[in-house]
């Protein structure tokens, strides 16, 4: 039981998420659902001179998906859009710092997928290409 993924970082972000809410108007708004469990995340972004000047996320889901989205917003706010698009799954997992099992990977990366689809306008991204 020592390998619990419910460490402080996850519980802190889950209970007190950063950049939580909606931006209206926003330059980019995108919503994704995890069809396996019905988790939802919506991300709103304002862009100035190619930088993510403001970001907000909203949704409902497990602690892993919501905390991961919160951590993601910390990582990309104030950064160039191109950098956010280039962010990899591994970059995010490193920041999360927890062992994520294959079954929870979709939860952990739902926010990242939502952000990338929103910023690129793509209709889908394979999970292993995130």
């Amino acid at each position: 039981m020592t390998d619990s993924i419910y460490r402080e970082i996850i519980l802190d972000h889950y209970k007190n998420p950063h950049h939580h809410g909606r931006l209206d108007p926003a330059d980019v708004s995108h919503e994704e659902t995890n069809p396996l469990c019905g988790d939802e995340i919506r991300i709103d972004v304002r862009i100035n001179d190619g930088l993510i000047s403001e970001i907000a996320f909203d949704g409902r889901g497990c602690a892993v998906s919501q905390a991961s989205a919160s951590i993601l917003t910390d990582m990309v706010v104030g950064r160039p859009v191109t950098e956010a698009i280039a962010l990899s799954r591994e970059d995010l997992l490193e920041e999360l710092g927890i062992p994520v099992s294959p079954a929870r990977m979709k939860c952990a990366t739902l926010g990242l997928k939502t952000l990338k689809l929103g910023l690129t306008g793509a209709t889908s991204i394979d999970d292993d290409k995130l």
Binding site: M1, S4, I5, L36, C37, D39, R60, C62, V64, C107
Partner: peptide, 21 residues
């Protein structure tokens, strides 16, 4: 607590349940 988190913590005690829709 979201059901996924409930099930994940139960799994840490080797209790297998279903969480989801």
């Amino acid at each position: 607590v979201h059901p996924h988190d409930v099930a994940a913590i139960l799994d840490e005690g080797n209790v297998a349940v279903r969480a989801g829709h």
